[in-house]
């Protein structure tokens, strides 16, 4: 990928306006884009790439494809897509924690509910539910995480392949 979007983060009003404009532009260029990823279709990977100012590469691995986003500053995000181009897992590793609200989309509220009791300490998250598994770990300079939808793993794909 050679296109790059440089935009301010989405925390302030001018930033939001700029982000919205950027997103609308991306949406116009990419049919079917939506602002969520885990559980969504392939076009949302592009929304993530834009949001995180990342570079993207794609590898095919049997029953699924891996869209890897290289963020500024060495953190990598990997999104796992099944044969119908739906994201069934995301994983990340590196010195920066990626924006999980962006990556987890509709599942973010469940991450938040699980992580709130861990406030005031630096405990990792090990969330294991029937339809959603999230693990976060590591320490400053080297964080890890995986989030996946166990009921939507493609046939023959095991959770161990998500890394």
């Amino acid at each position: 990928m050679t296109r790059h979007f440089l935009k301010p983060p989405r925390n302030s009003t001018p930033g939001r306006v700029f982000a919205l404009a950027t997103w609308l532009l991306a949406a116009a260029l990419t049919p079917g884009i939506c602002l969520a990823v885990l559980g969504q279709d392939a076009s949302t990977v592009e929304a993530d790439r834009v949001h995180m100012q990342a570079q993207r590469s794609i590898t095919q691995s049997g029953a699924f494809s891996v869209h890897e986003l290289q963020l500024p500053g060495a953190t990598r995000v990997r999104e796992y897509l099944d044969s119908s181009h739906r994201v069934f897992a995301v994983a990340w590793s590196g010195p920066s924690i990626p924006d999980l609200q962006q990556l987890l989309g509709a599942y973010f509220v469940r991450y938040q509910a699980a992580v709130r009791p861990l406030a005031r300490s630096r405990r990792p998250l090990a969330m294991q539910q029937t339809d959603l598994v999230i693990h976060t770990g590591g320490h400053p300079r080297a964080f890890f995480g995986v989030a996946y939808l166990p009921l939507q793993l493609p046939l023959g794909v095991s959770a161990e392949q998500i890394r």
Binding site: P9, N11, I97, D99, L100
Partner: peptide
């Protein structure tokens, strides 16, 4: 600014 940017908070708990 009182509020950190989303690439800092990353959706995690404020400390």
């Amino acid at each position: 600014p009182a509020t950190a940017p989303s690439s800092c908070t990353a959706g995690t708990n404020a400390m």
